[in-house]
Simulated assay, not measured.
Amino acid sequence: MTDEPRVSADEMIGRLSPSMSPWRRLRGAVPLVAGLAGAVFVGSLWATEPGPLPGRTQLAFALFTVFCLAWAGYGGWVVTRRAPLYALEQVIAAWLAVTASVVTTAVVATIAVQRGSGLPGVVAGGAAFVVVSVVLAVRAHARRAVLLRRKRELTRQEEA
């Protein structure tokens, strides 16, 4: 029997990867920068539009600004994490994509119905984005479940 202290799985992982890899930093920096740029761009367009805008146009600008800020917040969160996320960032990104694609499809479809044209194309395009984002969400949840299951296995082995 040795007098060496036991190290938990979380501590061992923390020692192995104290900082994020350049690839993970890039994966967080891209949505951070793109989200901020998008929010500035949409906000600038919204602020400089002449005259009073219709309510649905105001709503569209507001939604796009919120989506951009959500992506920027997500990117900032990923970049500031030093500990392993066990694919949580993929789950969050996938649900952001699902939400954005569903809401955007609904808004554009509503506008198409009000104008009386283009609804089939809007529904087809929107459905494609929704399906892809849902598939990515399911894959992200499955990947996270595998990683968490492996973490539990390692923790049980260390306790034995």
Rank of each mutant, 00 (worst) to 15 (best):
E11P: 04
Q90V: 00
G43I: 07
V7L: 13
D10S: 08
L147C: 01
E11L: 10
Q157L: 11
A87P: 02
V7F: 12
L85Q: 10
V66F: 14
R25N: 09
V102H: 04
T57M: 13
R24P: 01
S21R: 02
V146A: 15
P120F: 09
A83G: 06
R56Q: 08
M20P: 05
A29P: 02
A97I: 03
G121S: 09
G118D: 07
V79S: 03
A160N: 02
T2P: 00
T57E: 14
W23F: 11
Q157T: 04
R150A: 13
A70R: 09
G125R: 03
R139D: 02
E11G: 04
E4L: 14
P50D: 09
V42A: 10
V30P: 02
M20W: 00
F129N: 10
A47T: 02
A34G: 00
L36R: 01
A87R: 14
L45T: 03
I92N: 02
T48A: 07
T104C: 03
G55F: 14
A100F: 13
Q90F: 12
A112R: 09
H141N: 12
W23S: 07
A94W: 04
G75L: 08
P31V: 07
A39I: 06
Q157D: 13
L16Y: 05
V91Q: 10
D10K: 11
A127M: 08
L88P: 00
A9S: 09
F129Q: 08
A47E: 02
S133H: 05
V91S: 06
K151P: 00
S44T: 13
A140P: 05
V108K: 04
G125C: 02
F129E: 01
A72N: 06
M1Q: 09
R144C: 05
W77M: 06
V130L: 08
T80N: 09
D10W: 08
L148P: 01
Y74R: 07
R56K: 07
P84R: 14
V107C: 01
V40H: 04
F67C: 04
Q114E: 15
A37Q: 04
A137T: 06
G76V: 10
A128I: 14
V33M: 12
V30F: 11
G28T: 05
E153W: 10
G38S: 07
V66Y: 08
F41N: 02
V91H: 08
G121R: 05
A60F: 14
P54C: 03
L53A: 15
L53E: 13
S117P: 00
A34T: 11
R152Y: 00
Q114G: 14
F64P: 01
V132I: 15
Y86E: 06
A9Q: 12
T105A: 12
I111N: 12
S8C: 05
G75K: 11
D10A: 13
R25E: 07
V123H: 11
A124R: 15
W71Q: 12
T80S: 15
A62Y: 11
